[in-house]
Amino acid sequence: MMSGPLSESPAADMRIDKFQFVSLIETLDIPATKISVRARIPDDHSIFEGHFPGHPLMPGVLLTELMAQTCGFLLLSLNGFARMPFLAALKEVKLREFVRPGSELVCSAERAHDGSGYAVLNASVRLRESQKRICDGTLMFRIVPFPNNELRQHMGDRAHEVGLCISGDGVHLLEKAAT
């Protein structure tokens, strides 16, 4: 298993407006088909004006999206960024705790089933400091050829931003690539 170079540094805030929820990939274990990422909820954001006035909470659908994006980075890493996973179904998602602005999270995912053109993964989110479990679920993805080069390029750029290096011999965390 590989650990990232910035594990003890503060994670950057997730970029909700750009729908980028993963701040940093912390561990990637290709043989075990597991990943963990860090994600920090901004201290302030316009979504908290509506969700909810006087009681700001991270919406459960966005925590679910964090699990989906974490699963997505794992599936992309497993296939060498050759095919794009699209979320197809949510199974048994449970939102266990309220999550406040400024919370730092760790999201973990593991592939539970590798199908032909699809995969099923288990994912969970915890508070980074206390390890308290926030939410978990089982997610199904269709895995298809990239619909165009623009998306392929974007995903490659995002991979680099969150600490991945895509090379001829596979996908690594940047620390691994640098050694």
Partner: peptide, 25 residues
């Protein structure tokens, strides 16, 4: 197609097989 994928997932789990759905399609 999504429901069929769900059925295929259950069938694969039940019988411990891998159905080459991509290849068939």
């Amino acid at each position: 197609s999504l429901d069929f994928l769900d059925a295929v997932f259950n069938i694969e789990q039940k019988f411990g097989i891998s159905i080459p759905l991509d290849d068939w399609t």
